[in-house]
Design a protein around this nucleic acid. Structure first.
Lengths: 344, 344
DNA sequence: GTGAAAGCGCTAACAC
DNA sequence: GTGTTAGCGCTTTCAC
C-alpha cells in the first residue's frame, strides 16, 4: 500500500485536513473526542507526515547542522570528542523533532568557508552548532553568520556580546586540578599547553597559573611546554620537562592526548607513574581509561554542552532566550591512577 | 534579499522553469547557449534549489541513513570505528549529492526495532547503511527490510543471497596474522575471541585456526579464551592464558580493545611486550597507535567499506548492480611494536 | 530543444 | 472548534 497522506487520514476520521494538521502538531483548539478520532485514523493508516511537504510549506528544514574539525583528516585520535558532541546534539534534536546533519571539515583547507556556506545554502538548516576549534576561528564563524542561519559556538574561548555560546569552566577547573596536584605535595608541577588556535585550551594555562598561586607556588616559565594537542607533542614536552636539571614531579597536560604522550615517554624511560611522576590530563576522552595507568583528568561535559547548544538553538527559533548569551557547563575532576603523592 | 527561486532564474534567463530544471539536473536536450544563459542567471542570483520542494515533487529524500551501535551508550571506546564509517559514508554521499543522517542506537534496548522503523518512516531515507554488529542481528535487519527501504549491511558475518553487503576478509587476514606470529618462532599462540553476536569477529577465530594449520601448528583448546570485545575481557583472557602451566608467547586478540586489555595486564605483571610476550589485535583503531607499545594489528578498511556500501546504495537506486551481492574490501597487516621474535 | 500545466503533501491565513 | 483556500518551489507529463 502507498503511504497514507493527510487527506486519507482526514477522510477516515471524517474531518478536514486542517484538523488533522492540528492534531499532528499538537495545536490547541481541538475537541478531545475529535482528537481521539484523528489519532485512531492515524494509527490505523500508520500515517507519517511527509517531511518535505511540511518543510516546504512551513519554510523550515527541521535540520540542525553540526560542524566540527574532522578527526580522521589528520590522524588525531580524539574521535570520542566528536562522538560525545554528536550524542548530545542528537539527544536535543530528537526531543525537539529535528534531525541532525553532520559535517566534519578540515580548517586547514583553503576553501572551508566556501564549502560551509554552500552546504548551508543547500541544506538550509534551522541552526548550526559550531564545535571547537572551529568556533574560535573568526573567518569560519563569520562565513556561517553571513548565511543568516542561527548558530551557536561550543567552547568559543572568548564569547562575543550578542552571540550565543556554551563553554565549560576551563580556567576554574584547571586551577582546581593544579591545586589538587599541589595538595599531593608536588611543588614542581609542569604544564603542557595546547594548540594556540584552540582558545578554550589556552584558558587551561591560565587556570594552571591561578592554581599555582592559590597553592602558594611560584610560576616557572621553564616548566611550561608549548604543545599542539597531539600525542607527539605531549611526548616532546615530557622529554623536555623530564630532562630539566630540576624536573617536575607532576605534569598537567591541557588535554588527554598530550597526557598519553607523557605516559608513553615515562614507560619508555622506565619512570613509574604515579610513583615517581604524576600525570594529569583534560577532557576525559575514552583514551583516559584505556591507557595504563588510567589517567587522572577533567571530565569535560561535552555531550551536555552540545545538548545545551542545540536546545538554545531551538529556543532561539522560538524567539525567546535571544540574548541569553554565554552558558557554562562545569567540568569535574576525575581522579584515577596516574596521580599520587610527590616522591620523597 | 529573499532566496532566489527557479522562477527568478527563469525570468532572468528568459526561459521556462523547466529549462532551468534541466540545467540544474544536468539533463540532456538543452542547447549549449541556453545552458550558459541559465548558468549565468543562477550564478548572478546565487540560486540554490530548494531541497524540500525538490524532494516533495520527486518522491525522494536524498538522505542516507547510517545506523550503528552507540559506542557512548556503554562506555565502549571504539569511537574511531564509528568516525571512520561516518567518514566513508559521507564521502560517497557528498559525491552523489546526498546528505547523511546518523542514528546511533543501543541494540540492547527492547524497542530498537520500533525506534528504527519509526525513524525510517519519518525521514524516508533513500537508503540505509547498517553497521556491525547491528548488521548481524536478524530482528534489526528485518525491521529495516520491512520498511521497503533499500539497505546494505556492513560486515554482516554471513551474507544472504539477494542482499547487498560489504565486508572485509576477516578470516583470510586473521590467518595471515597467525602465520606472521608463527613465522616469528611462536609455537604457542593464544587467541582471545570476540563477542558471539558480532559474526565478523567470529570469522577471525576461524582464520586463527586456518593460520595455525597452515603453519603446521596444532590447535589447543586451552589457548582460546572467549572474550566479548571489551578491554576488560581482554584482561581476563590474558590473566587466564598467562596463568597456564605452559603459557603462550604470543596472543592474538580478535579486536584492538581486547589486545589493549592484554597489554594492561602485561604492564601490571611486569611482563615485557614484545620481549617476553607478543600481542596482536584487529581493527587498527586509534587506540592501536596510542598505547605503549604500539599495537601490531589488522587495518580494517572501514571508511572504504562504508563508502562502497553507500555507493552501492546509489547504484541500486539507479536500478543497476541490483544483484551484485557481497563485496569484499581486504584488510592489511600493520606490524608495529607489540610483536617480536619468540623468547629463548 | 523547449514550455505549459498539473500536482507532490503539507501549513498559513482567514473565514465560519 | 473547525473548515476552506491558496500557496510553498520544485518535478513530471505531455504537448509542441
Amino acid at each position: 500500500m502507498a503511504k497514507a497522506t493527510i487527506d486519507d487520514v482526514a477522510h477516515l476520521a471524517g474531518v478536514s485536513i486542517k484538523t488533522v494538521s492540528r492534531v499532528v502538531n499538537h495545536e490547541p483548539n481541538v475537541r478531545e473526542s475529535t482528537r481521539e478520532k484523528v489519532e485512531q485514523a492515524i494509527a490505523r493508516l500508520n500515517y507519517r507526515p511527509n517531511i518535505s511537504a511540511r518543510n516546504l510549506a512551513s519554510h523550515r528544514s527541521r535540520l540542525i547542522l553540526l560542524v566540527y574539525d574532522d578527526p580522521a583528516a589528520y590522524e588525531t585520535p580524539s574521535s570520542g570528542y566528536v562522538i560525545r558532541m554528536q550524542q548530545g546534539t542528537l539527544k536535543a534534536c530528537k526531543a525537539a523533532g529535528y534531525e541532525l546533519l553532520i559535517h566534519p571539515c578540515n580548517y586547514r583547507d583553503s576553501d572551508v568557508e566556501k564549502d560551509l556556506r554552500s552546504l548551508i545554502e543547500r541544506t538550509r538548516p534551522d541552526g548550526v552548532v559550531i564545535a571547537a576549534p572551529l568556533s574560535n576561528m573568526p573567518s569560519i564563524v563569520s562565513a556561517i553568520a553571513r548565511t543568516n542561519t542561527p548558530y551557536i559556538r561550543l567552547s568559543p574561548g572568548k564569547s562575543n556580546a550578542g552571540e550565543y555560546s556554551v563553554a565549560t569552566n576551563d580556567r576554574e577547573v584547571s586551577a582546581e586540578m593544579t591545586r589538587y596536584l599541589a595538595s599531593l605535595g608536588h611543588t614542581r608541577i609542569g604544564f603542557i599547553a595546547g594548540h594556540p588556535k584552540h582558545k578554550a585550551v589556552a584558558n587551561r594555562l591560565l587556570g594552571y597559573k591561578d592554581g599555582l598561586k592559590q597553592s602558594g607556588l611560584d610560576f616557572h616559565e621553564e616548566l611550561v611546554f608549548a604543545g599542539d594537542n597531539s600525542i607527539a607533542s605531549g611526548s616532546a614536552g615530557a622529554d623536555e620537562l623530564l630532562g630539566l636539571a630540576d624536573p617536575p614531579t607532576a605534569i598537567f597536560a591541557a588535554n588527554d592526548d598530550m597526557a598519553a604522550g607523557i605516559i608513553r615517554v615515562a614507560n619508555r624511560l622506565g619512570i613509574d607513574v604515579p610513583q615517581q611522576l604524576s600525570v594529569a590530563g583534560f577532557d576525559d576522552s575514552s583514551l583516559a581509561r584505556q591507557i595504563y595507568p588510567a589517567l587522572t583528568t577533567v571530565r569535560q561535559p561535552l555531550a551536555e554542552m552540545a545538548e545545551a547548544a542545540a536546545l538554545a538553538l531551538f529556543s532561539e527559533n522560538d524567539e525567546q532566550m535571544l540574548q541569553s548569551g554565554a552558558q557554562t557547563v562545569p567540568g569535574k575532576l576525575q581522579v584515577r591512577e596516574s596521580t599520587g603523592p610527590a616522591p620523597g
